[in-house]
């Protein structure tokens, strides 16, 4: 499968500040989450990929097109939902999306027809003729999505698309993003809301300090840990702990009704059962620890800060 985005040692400097530190990555088609704290370089990365900000060094392609030479060609096949409000005063929802279509190079008739289609799609049926400045936050976000979709892009860059939305609106927006992914549009979802990313994304890229800290499939990030386990038991906890330690099992912490442990090596769960038998402890459960996206995110950020 051809990657939708490829970066090779992509660097962006603003004077002495290095916003992107030699990023190298390849993003396959699908819905991809771009996570990171403020100042991680997410918006700069999007800006560079859109060809708005020239990269200081390195190379990148979007849909196989070089970001230095193919800016306009890239923007014809990419939709962008900025984080902030970007409504033009005095325009209705329809006028705004129509205008976005015209700016993308659509004919008058196509832009008008398509504006109605996408406004219908994002659920703004009867509000489309009202002045856009009267819209609620949720409607504004959906209007921004509509303008990004009007020319039917192959890739969507969404910068915090659920900002300022109520739970119902947020669910709807995430539903739309998921549907767009199923319709064959690749989505790069930049967000700091981990549940949003967990809900709709197949892959996640975690950025921090202008670097890609970790990336991978969401299911891989949530896979069971090979050596970290939680053991629930009844019996003498002190004796059981001592026995586990004797067998090189590292007890991390005591939790309600059990212990968090780190096995010396993968597949050595028998040591726990052996210790239980020796100390007459009844093991109620032995479960590998699953990393949540939040834990992966926090761990990545901590590693970066320590480095």
């Amino acid at each position: 499968m051809t990657p939708i985005l490829e970066c090779e040692r992509l660097t962006k400097r603003y004077g002495k500040i290095v916003a992107l530190k030699g990023i190298s990555l390849a993003i396959q088609p699908g819905v991809v989450g771009l996570l990171g704290p403020n100042g991680a370089g997410k918006s700069t990365l999007i800006s560079v990929l859109l060809g708005q900000t020239p990269a200081s060094s390195g190379a990148a392609t979007v849909l196989g097109m070089d970001i230095r030479r193919g800016q306009r060609a890239i923007r014809r096949r990419v939709g962008f939902v900025p984080e902030n409000d970007c409504l033009i005063p005095g325009m209705s929802g329809t006028g705004y999306v129509y205008y976005a279509g015209r700016l993308a190079g659509m004919s008058h008739a196509d832009a008008m027809q398509r504006a109605h289609e996408v406004l219908d799609y994002v659920g703004m049926e009867e509000a489309r003729y009202r002045p856009a400045e009267q819209y609620s936050s949720g409607m504004r976000q959906r209007l921004k999505l509509a303008q990004a979709l009007v020319h039917d892009p192959d890739v969507l860059f969404l910068d915090e698309p659920t900002n300022g939305m109520d739970p119902q609106g947020r669910q709807m927006m995430l539903g739309l993003i998921g549907d767009l992914g199923r319709a064959g549009i690749s989505v790069l979802l930049s967000s700091h809301l981990l549940p949003d990313v967990e809900r709709v994304c197949e892959r996640v890229i975690i950025m921090g300090g202008g670097e890609v800290l970790t990336e991978g499939r969401l299911e891989e990030m949530n896979k069971p840990h090979p050596t970290l386990y939680r053991v629930d038991f009844t019996g003498d906890a002190a004796t059981f702990r001592r026995r586990l330690t004797d067998d090189s099992v590292h007890v991390l912490e005591q939790v309600d009704g059990g212990l968090q442990i780190a096995l010396p090596e993968e597949g050595s769960q028998r040591l726990v059962l052996q210790a239980a038998r020796d100390t007459a402890t009844l093991v109620l459960g032995l479960q590998p620890k699953r990393s949540s996206l939040e834990e992966t995110f926090m761990a990545a950020i901590q590693r970066q800060q320590q480095a």
Partner: peptide
């Protein structure tokens, strides 16, 4: 007030048209 429903009755439809030249925006 527009109804914001999470369950969309219709799916996204791709557009089959072609864009004009970028110079003429």
């Amino acid at each position: 007030m527009t109804t914001a429903s999470a369950d969309r009755a219709h799916q996204y439809q791709r557009w089959q048209g072609t864009l004009g030249k970028a110079h003429w925006t």
